[in-house]
Amino acid sequence: MELNFVHKPSGHCENGVVSNLLRFYGVEMSEAMVFGLGSGLFFSHMPFYKMHGMAITSFRPLPGDIFSRVVKLLGIKMKRFKFRDKEKAMDKLDELLMKGFPVGMLVGVYHLPYFPKEYRFHFNAHNICVIGKEEDQYIVSDPVVVDKCRLSSNELKLVRFASGTYPPKGRMYYISDFKGIKPVNESMVRKAILKNCNRMLKIPLPMFGVEGIRYLAKRMRKWVSFFGEKKAALNLAQVIRMLEEIGTGGAGFRFMYAAFLQEASVMINEPRLNRLSAELTAIGDQWRDFSYNAARLFKKRDAEVATYDQLADKLMVIADREEKLFRELEKVIRDAR
């Protein structure tokens, strides 16, 4: 049994699952639009929340947030589950599949057999969508893989109940009622952009949003005296992995949001968004420059590498530019009202 589900790869797993799911129900929406409507651009650096013993740096909201924001805006109803019992989690999945629902779910990547072995870390916020079952094999649409994949029921059970930071606990979700769907309109786009501005500018804690970038910069300056040379380099490598590896976005997310602003500018007829999109592209390029220099630092490839202080300076510049951008964006959206 396989549902008639079109699988398209995407830049980020959660957007990809949402965009593929919506297509199943006949709504064609680009990944960038899903990302924008989900107010998906974010930054956080959380030294108190660890993976592999090092601080988590993330460029997106909590897993599931993008999805729930999009369905709320569009007026679709969805149901979410979380399980204690592994068998119940699998039975419920089968039941929904047989009723004809594609089911999105959270999995850990450590045991995913189709991932390259270098990716086998305990990263537990990956999204996939199960779209069919043949005997003991589940047919899976994984947005970061070009084609559809297959997982045996034991493999699927293992990844759904992965262990480590933020265990997925069999979390899954599906669209239960599609009747109330509203087409994307101007007010939704405005609302989503304002929400994103708020998240980037107005969380009164130092670890989140634009302030979070500055917070990371501040801590980075102390890494060597704090952790020593080796551990500092590992921390930096962890930031770069989170910047560039699947799941957390980073520079790629800046470009994706820029693509969304471009789409939005046509949709709400606001040419100023196009200019801001170009600015965000330039900021994305700066993030890439940061990654490039950081990689040279921990590899010590050349005699002349940037120091942690210089990298932190780069982050401060990025933070200032992002702050300016979001303040302008907020103004543009509020003005037009």
């Binding site: 592999h52 380099a233 770069i240 992995r241 560039e244 590896e245 990654s291 990689a295 590899k299």
Partner: peptide, 11 residues
């Protein structure tokens, strides 16, 4: 991308 590959290999 090379910096990303480097970061993974370094880890």
């Amino acid at each position: 991308w090379e910096p990303k590959n480097d970061a993974i290999n370094f880890a």
